[in-house]
Design a protein around this nucleic acid. Structure first.
Lengths: 195, 195
DNA sequence: GTGGCTTATTGACAAATGTCAATAATTTAC
DNA sequence: GTAAATTATTGACATTTGTCAATAAGCCAC
């Protein structure tokens, strides 16, 4: 696994594929990120705190989830290898987060503070462009999720997820898949058994 | 109503408040947009077509909605005065749209092609920044909508909408509010009567 | 490897929401 | 202003999904 040798390898690939940048600048860019490995189920952000960091996942999986007063969890977002993720409303607006962040697998991540992240936008002319494109993609993904939630029933949403992200379903415990789909664990279990 | 005198007035306000720009440049910017008034229920984009335009609403209200095989409509997005809106995935990726766009009130709008819109990003240095900030806001709004859909029941979602957008509820037919909340018209009617 | 904890499955039932139909109220178009 | 169309409400019932509980299966830590 490359990340054990150079934790910045994947981020370097990501950035240099997205915008023209020379090696020296790329190094300066990446060094703004710090490196961390996490344990299974480690909490990276408590609900109620202000999200200080955005993460880039080298390996593993982060989960952004909410916990209601009855203890019911709802997974808002899942972040796997090669992707950025955080509790976005909190990170962006620097207000207390409704959601917590947890690494559901032992993970290898880079992270950068909100201040440094925004400083990159000023320092690297191409970065605002790359970030904007990335926002467009994330926004489209969230629109598609809204569509599925308002137009599909539980079974259709599960089938859609099987088509679009079969690896997620294999990889994650089904209680988390159920949370993500907005249905109960029992309903998901029944969907799976009844064809 | 200012828009009857100068249809660009509101867009000028919007842009000059968001980025430093002199009057001449502002004029060049705004003239990339064309002006149109719509009739009630006029369809601006058919589902299946590629969204050519993004709209800026001077007055009235646009609705981005999906229609399933059984004729059930689901409202994905509502766009009111002073806001940009389109069938975003289609406009951005230039692929056929799952959603249609309709002006549910007689409306006064500006519109610009995808090509011209992106050309503005190159021509006006500040515009990429303003657009990025706007994307962040829209993305956050969509995350909050996902949260409400996966954590709240119909009554809670309706109460939330009453708190955050009371004017929308007054202004739009309740069948559209119901579509937007992802519930049936009858369920919404019952929620309203039962306190 | 074993014990203990977490997760998954299944059943019985309850609650929420949808569907269909009939009627009432409202709005629109002319 | 009036007729026609659309929208809203309400009832009866069906369906979906959730909840609780019991058990089974899987997995993790030591």
């Amino acid at each position: 696994m490359p990340s054990t040798q150079n934790p910045y390898h994947q981020l370097q690939q990501f950035i240099s594929a997205a915008m023209p940048i020379d090696d020296e600048q790329l190094d300066i860019f990446c060094k703004k990120f710090r490196h961390k490995t996490t344990k299974r189920n480690e909490i990276l952000l408590q609900a109620g705190d202000i999200a200080p960091y955005i993460y880039f996942v080298n390996s593993g999986c982060l989960r952004v989830f909410m916990l209601d007063v009855n203890g019911k969890e709802s997974t808002r977002f899942l972040v796997t290898e090669g992707r950025f993720g955080t509790a976005f409303p909190s990170f962006n607006l620097q207000e207390p987060s409704l959601a917590a962040i947890q690494s559901i697998e032992p993970s290898d991540v880079l992270y950068i503070s909100q201040h440094d992240f925004h400083a990159l936008l000023d320092t690297f002319p191409g970065w605002e462009h790359v970030y904007r494109i990335s926002l467009e993609k994330d926004y489209i993904a969230s629109i598609k999720r809204i569509e599925s939630l308002i137009t599909m029933d539980a079974k259709q949403r599960y089938q859609l997820l099987m088509e679009t992200s079969p690896t997620l379903i294999q990889r994650l415990p089904s209680k988390i898949i159920a949370d993500y789909l907005g249905i109960s664990q029992e309903t998901l279990s029944r969907l799976k058994s009844k064809r």
